[in-house]
Amino acid sequence: MIIPVRCISCGKPVGHLWEEYKERTEDGEDSGEVLDDLGLDRYCCRSLFLTHTDLIHRAAKFKK
């Protein structure tokens, strides 16, 4: 839906890193290297980024 503010497992704030991650991986950078660069070294935070899909712009089209 939307990137969590903090990692759901360890509690590290990660929300502000998402857009940079998305931009850089879309530009063809290796996701593992971007994650290292962003300081996400635990596998909980890494899996959160690797598996996340932004869907909020689609949900916004429907009535609550």
């Binding site: 939307i2 712009h57 916004a60 089209k61």
Partner: peptide
């Protein structure tokens, strides 16, 4: 951190 997304508005 200023860049944490809270929600998105249409």
């Amino acid at each position: 951190y200023d860049g944490i997304p809270i929600t998105e508005l249409d």
